[in-house]
Design a protein around this nucleic acid. Structure first.
Lengths: 163, 163
DNA sequence: GTGGGTCATGAACTAGAATGAATGAGCAAG
DNA sequence: CTTGCTCATTCATTCTAGTTCATGACCCAC
């Protein structure tokens, strides 16, 4: 009763899965919170009440969290909660905070970061960092040099595999 | 191997040092925002001012965003912004909103942030990607050139021609 | 020097996020 | 039917997120 989420492992996965086939990820904050209420339930499969969730958030974070306000968020009458409240909700429902945002921008950057993961080569990393702050002309010159060297290494068959 | 001998420490090293010193993995919201200001800069490599960022956020979202408040967030005098403001900041600085939270994803992004900042420059990014797969010797050669050019650009004017 | 631009900082204020207490609907005993 | 409980909903209030305005430092042009 006091810590409703504790006994569940991998609940967030349940959430994403069930959400995919149910409402296809609602686009409003209210819709997302409501989806959480419908999907994340007590062991008895009953929905949590607003007061229950609010109390759990209070006890987990030490800060205040009113059931009324949670209802307002869920029904869309309020749609601009603070960082504090978003953290508490994400923690209770076991979802990443990014769930509450439409993260097209975040997804793009995440993809970019993934691409950067390819740059395992420490030397290449350090090279990129050094190039920061150079003039565009200088970077262009270096790029040309890379092309030349890369072609030469390819023609001589000296290119070795990475990773 | 890639040390030019005399000028051992390059410009990028300054960046990494600055990040490692105080904000290697900033745990506070203020620290994270401050890190963004240091890493994400104008094409001229100057830091954005608070007014600049605030105005850009206003124009991008249509909502209000005051420079004073941004300063308060950056210096830690305010630490509980609303969803609206977090979205605007994330959009401007090209980071996922999760970056502002103590989250798994946020932590990962914070770790990669310095490299991301480096590679936000499209030219530098493409340069790095093309360097992947080159032999260590070739990468070392390129790195040496970067050091030399960076040094020359530092000693002469910033927008100096390199021919 | 003086005037005008940009900047970080601070104080005073406004707007709205968030709370608490009150209301009524619904349900299950007694 | 009534009592007692829990819940969603409403409303009035409090508190703080967020803004506006003012100040001083700094730099550059005149």
């Amino acid at each position: 009763m006091r810590e409703p989420g504790t006994g569940s492992t991998g609940r967030a996965q349940e959430v994403t899965d069930a959400m995919a086939d149910e409402k296809a990820a609602p686009s409003t904050l209210a819709g997302r919170i409501d989806a959480l209420f419908r999907v994340v339930r007590r062991p008895s499969r009953e929905q949590y009440s607003h007061e229950e969730v609010a109390r759990a958030c209070r006890e987990a974070t030490g800060d205040s969290f009113s059931a009324t306000y949670l209802w307002q968020l869920r029904t869309g009458r309020r749609d601009n909660p603070t960082k504090r409240h978003l953290e508490a909700l994400a923690q209770f429902f076991h979802v990443p905070v990014a769930y509450f945002f439409d993260d097209d921008q975040g997804a793009a950057v995440a993809k970019e970061l993934e691409l950067l993961g390819a740059l395992r080569d420490a030397q290449v990393r350090s090279m990129a960092l050094r190039a920061v702050g150079l003039s565009p002309e200088a970077v262009g010159t270096i790029s040309d040099m890379i092309d030349v060297i890369a072609r030469r290494e390819r023609e001589h068959g000296a290119a070795d595999d990475i990773a």
